[in-house]
Computed example of a mutant assay.
Amino acid sequence: MADEVPADVVQALRALSNPLRLQLLTWLREPERNFDLAGAEVDPHEVGVCVSHIQAKVGLAQSTVSAYLSELQRAGLVRATRVGKWTHYKRDEQRIAELLTVLGKTL
């Protein structure tokens, strides 16, 4: 079908359909404002926010938070960077902008 929505857009929308995943993406927009970054060893804007800081805010098991973040990563909405034994997540602003452009043209 010529008017079919691209699969990557459907995957991104599916990832955003969960309220907590949407909230995580929103919080990552302003990490200093939304997370207690005491003890952070990297710049949250350059590298991202450590899963442990995110987990502390949401109060869920680390494995649950990691699963939510992995879904956002598979959808291309966040990027993961490994620093030692810790994984840090930050928004992929370019991908988010592309998604908004596609949605603006599609909907």
Rank of each mutant, 00 (worst) to 15 (best):
R95W: 03
A80K: 15
G48I: 07
E93Y: 04
K85M: 15
Y89G: 00
L60S: 10
S63P: 02
E41F: 04
T81P: 01
A61V: 07
V65F: 02
W86N: 10
E41Y: 00
A61I: 12
E71P: 00
V65S: 06
W86K: 15
G48C: 05
K85Q: 15
V83S: 14
Q62L: 13
G76K: 02
Y68V: 03
V58L: 14
E46H: 03
K85D: 15
E46G: 08
V58Y: 12
E41C: 00
V65C: 10
I54P: 15
E41W: 01
T87H: 11
V58G: 06
H45R: 13
C50V: 06
G59C: 05
T81G: 10
V49P: 03
G59I: 06
V83A: 07
E93R: 13
K85T: 15
P44S: 04
V78S: 13
Q55H: 08
R95F: 01
T81D: 02
Q94P: 00
V65M: 09
H88S: 04
A80V: 13
Y89E: 09
Q62W: 05
K90N: 00
V83C: 04
A61T: 12
D43K: 05
V78M: 09
G76F: 03
V42E: 14
Q73R: 11
L72G: 01
Q73P: 01
V65N: 05
S52K: 15
V58K: 12
I54W: 03
G48D: 11
I96V: 12
P44A: 02
T87F: 10
R95V: 04
W86T: 11
C50P: 09
A67W: 08
H45C: 05
G48R: 10
S52W: 11
D43I: 01
A56F: 05
V51L: 12
D43F: 05
S66E: 06
G84Y: 13
G84N: 03
R74H: 03
K57P: 13
Q94S: 11
S66G: 07
L77K: 03
P44G: 06
R79G: 00
E46T: 02
L60T: 05
R95P: 02
K57Q: 13
L72C: 12
W86P: 01
V47H: 14
S63T: 11
V58E: 14
G59D: 05
